Amino acid sequence: MTLTTDHPSIPPRRIGVLLINLGTPDDATPRAVRRYLGEFLSDRRVVEIPGLIWQPILRGIILNTRPKKSAHAYAQVWRDDGSPLAAITEAQATALAGAFGPDVIVDWAMRYGRPAIADRLAALKAQGCERILLAPLYPQYCAATTATANDKAFVALAGMRWQPAVRTLPPYHDDPAYIGALKDMIEAELAALDFSPQALVASFHGMPQRTLELGDPYHCHCAKTARLLSDALGRELMLAFQSRFGRAKWLEPATDATLAALPGKGVTRVAIVAPGFAADCLETLEELAIRGRQTFLDAGGTDFAYLPCLNDSAIGIAMLKSILSRELAGWNAPA
Rank of each mutant, 00 (worst) to 15 (best):
V166H: 09
L182P: 10
S243G: 00
R161A: 04
E90N: 02
A73R: 15
E287M: 03
P217T: 02
A158Q: 15
D103H: 12
D107N: 04
Y74W: 04
M207G: 09
K321I: 05
M160F: 12
E213M: 06
A223K: 10
S83I: 08
G330V: 04
D184G: 02
P334K: 06
I186Y: 02
G38D: 03
L297M: 15
A274W: 13
G301V: 07
D80P: 04
D175R: 11
R45H: 11
A188Y: 10
I49T: 13
A271H: 10
A261E: 05
A318C: 02
D119V: 03
H7Y: 01
A191T: 05
I315Q: 11
V77D: 03
T168I: 14
P102M: 03
N311E: 08
T284R: 05
V47Q: 00
P56L: 03
P115D: 08
E283R: 13
L137W: 05
P115T: 01
A257T: 09
T255F: 15
T4R: 11
D107F: 09
H221S: 06
A118N: 01
V166R: 03
E48F: 10
F100M: 01
I10A: 07
T5R: 11
P197Q: 07
A181T: 07
C309D: 03
L228Q: 12
G101R: 07
H219R: 14
A147V: 07
L22W: 08
K69F: 00
L233F: 04
T2R: 14
